[in-house]
């Protein structure tokens, strides 16, 4: 994962909570080694979570500390090389001490063959489902969106197309940046049932010092509303928006000084 991916993955927060499985923990540890600047992110997360947890704590039993200190001499010290162990389910003990000698290789080979056949079948089914889903998404595009694409394509900056992730009740859309803001990433996270939209913008180095831009939003009727000012000192912008019409939703980034967006810097839309 690159720096930005690990920052938006949500893994750092879970790592600080000690809530990751081994595989994800390894990813985070490798990212920390690769990007030392993550140390500051982790420190902020840790401080925030500690402050939050301390808002409402329960007093510990009064004798617990002395009991703890009294038991320490009996505690075995673990060697330095091994990392903090993760708990695992209790192992099942063998029920019988008398082993039965059965030739094992023919059984393993047979099981492997069966597994491969099953895997091939599952992959072929999934591939067919994927093609059907893609066709369904393509056919969903209505005329209005096509018209919008044509209109936006006539503008100077290339128009961002969407890389969509769909879920049952939620969807996260990563709006691809255009040339003018190549290091900017915008995510629209929507909860369809709750009709809530969260606009999450990473602009990192996209803005230079003293260069302010503003995000404008059109929720379908072309009456743009000012959503957020992008500050070069603030690499992350979070905006929660509640809109009534989720039919179409366009995000454009414009110079801070203008009163009406030109649509030259549309960074994406959802349909």
């Amino acid at each position: 994962m690159n720096l930005q991916e690990i920052r938006v993955s949500g893994l750092l927060e879970l790592y600080v909570m000690g809530a990751l499985d081994k595989a994800d923990e390894k990813i985070v540890k490798e990212s920390i080694a690769e990007h030392p600047q993550l140390a500051q992110d982790l420190a902020f997360i840790s401080e925030s979570l500690q402050a939050y947890t301390r808002l409402s704590t329960i007093a510990v039993p009064p004798q617990a500390k002395s009991q703890l200190l009294d038991t320490l001499e009996e505690v075995q010290i673990a060697p330095a090389t091994k990392r903090t162990p993760r708990p695992s389910a209790p192992s099942k003990k063998a029920k019988s001490n008398a082993p039965i000698n059965i030739p094992i290789w023919p059984i393993i080979s047979g099981l492997l063959l069966l597994g491969l056949i099953g895997l091939w079948y599952l992959m072929s089914q999934r591939s067919n489902a994927g093609i059907a889903e893609q066709q369904s998404i393509i056919s969903e595009k209505d005329e209005r969106i096509t018209a919008l694409e044509k209109e936006l394509a006539s503008k100077e900056a290339p128009i961002a197309m969407l890389n969509r992730l769909t879920g049952e009740d939620n969807r996260i859309m990563k709006l691809r940046p255009n040339r003018a803001f190549s290091e900017m990433e915008v995510y629209l996270h929507s909860n369809i049932k709750a009709d809530e939209y969260f606009l999450h913008i990473h602009h990192l180095k996209a803005l230079e010092e003293g260069q302010y831009y503003a995000i404008w939003i059109d929720n379908g009727d072309r009456t743009f509303s000012f959503a957020e000012r992008l500050n070069p000192d603030q690499v992350e912008t979070f905006k929660q928006i509640t809109i009534s019409d989720s039919d179409r939703y366009l995000v454009t980034i414009e110079e801070d000084t203008i009163s009406k967006p030109t649509l030259r810097n549309v960074i994406g839309y959802i349909e």
Binding site: L49, I172, F198, H200, F238
Partner: peptide, 15 residues
């Protein structure tokens, strides 16, 4: 993914 996003945004709110 949505849960992870909520947790991340929650920490951002706290921060």
């Amino acid at each position: 993914g949505t849960l992870k996003t909520r947790i991340r945004f929650g920490v951002n709110n706290l921060r």
